[in-house]
């Protein structure tokens, strides 16, 4: 992997990234010639309507999808074109995913879901501490089906954080939650950025969240319509819903 010098504090850089689906006349550009950068520890919101290409952008960043062209630098290394096993290593070391539908393993308890990170990274956070961090220490032995949606999402965040990754990538993390519970989850994610210095990237179509972000990337029809930096982002609790 070639090391290129990047701007100070810059952790992520997309350079003219395109993701095409299909061939010939039926080519669909889900992400079309996108370039932007994100600094370390930022709380970033990617905003856009349904089908705009937000999730594709996130998947490309997370090493779950392959760019058709362009470069994606993470910590100075271009991840485009990495073989499968290197991408797996990349995801293990750098990426913590939070999904819309939590994707907890139904046959493992809350504690076990977090503890399985031991099998992925060498030095994960202690699973109990991670659970405490999301306020669910007393739910350790419960199975996902015994938890509410919000609780499941908090376990999912704890699981993502437990790997101690460089960044947290969250795809509509509150999409399946009511607004109150959603706010709790978002506060938690914001806290990860503010207090723990994690880079947090959230994909959402909830425009209100823009006020809480350090950086807002607006996307429409696969292209970036605007990248805004917020000088004084609000706390999630202050954002009107």
């Amino acid at each position: 992997m070639s090391i290129e010098r990047t701007e100070k504090n810059e952790i992520i850089r997309f350079e003219r990234v395109t993701r095409e689906y299909g061939t010939g006349a039926h080519v669909l550009k889900a992400v079309d010639d996108v370039s932007f950068a994100i600094r370390e520890g930022e709380f970033v919101v990617i905003l856009g309507p349904s089908g705009a290409g937000k999730s594709t952008l996130l998947n490309l960043l997370g090493g779950m999808d392959f760019a058709s062209s362009g470069k994606i630098f993470v910590g100075g290394d271009n991840i485009v074109g990495l073989p499968d096993d290197r991408l797996t290593e990349y995801r293990a070391a750098h990426v913590g995913f939070v999904f819309q539908f939590y994707n907890l393993i139904p046959t493992l308890t809350a504690f076990e879901n977090i503890a399985l990170t031991r099998n992925i990274v060498k030095k994960p956070l202690d699973a109990r501490n991670a659970l405490e961090m999301v306020g669910l220490a007393d739910h350790a032995d419960q199975f996902p089906a015994q938890l509410s949606g919000g609780e499941q999402q908090r376990v999912s965040i704890a699981r993502a954080v437990a790997k101690n990754p460089t960044m947290l990538l969250c795809d509509e993390p509150t999409g399946a939650l009511d607004s109150e519970t959603g706010a709790v989850v978002l506060e938690m994610l914001q806290g990860m950025s503010r207090e723990r210095g994690k880079t947090v990237v959230i994909v959402t179509h909830n425009a209100a969240l823009a006020n809480a972000a350090d950086r807002v990337i607006r996307i429409r029809n696969g292209r970036i319509s605007a990248v805004e930096e917020n000088e004084s982002p609000k706390a999630v609790s202050e954002v009107a819903w």
Binding site: M64, T88, Y90, R91, F97, F99, N103, P106, R159
Partner: peptide
Amino acid sequence: EREMATLKVMGMKSGR
């Protein structure tokens, strides 16, 4: 499949 995919996304190796 879904559980496998989750683990794979989390960075678990195919061999495991």
